[in-house]
């Protein structure tokens, strides 16, 4: 991988981390608020279903995870193992696709 690509990966990971910091706070705060308010799962879903704002929020959250986690995993594997090269890059892209599928499934379930 070229130095330019590696630098752009680093930048993408930093930018997605900034988005994640915000998303995680909103996500956790909402969860605590909902549970403390005594809302049931059905009541929560009745509020989120059809809400395009929540869909947009969770799609952004999923996108940030899909960018952030595979780049981080690649860096961790490069440090902890001798795995390098295209096979590693391919494997973390697959991991990203898996995260995207799981994340989109969850986000859509909250919406519809």
């Amino acid at each position: 991988m070229s130095v330019r690509s590696e630098t752009r990966l680093w930048l993408a990971q930093r930018a997605s981390a900034a988005v994640l910091a915000l998303c995680v706070i909103v996500h956790l705060a909402t969860m605590v608020y909902a549970v403390r308010g005594g809302l049931s799962a059905a009541e929560i879903l009745s509020r989120t279903r059809g809400s395009s704002a929540w869909l947009a929020f969770y799609l952004l959250f999923v996108a940030a995870v899909v960018i952030h986690a595979p780049i981080g995993l690649r860096a961790v594997l490069r440090e902890m193992t001798t795995w390098r090269g295209r096979s590693l890059d391919f494997a973390v892209v697959l991991f990203g696709i898996l995260l995207a599928a799981l994340g989109l499934r969850a986000a859509l379930a909250v919406f519809a």
Binding site: M1, R4, E6, T7, A75, R78, E79
Partner: peptide
């Protein structure tokens, strides 16, 4: 900068 960036450079 190209010599010092990347996985074996400053970004590590």
């Amino acid at each position: 900068l190209a010599a010092v960036a990347g996985d074996a450079g400053c970004h590590a």
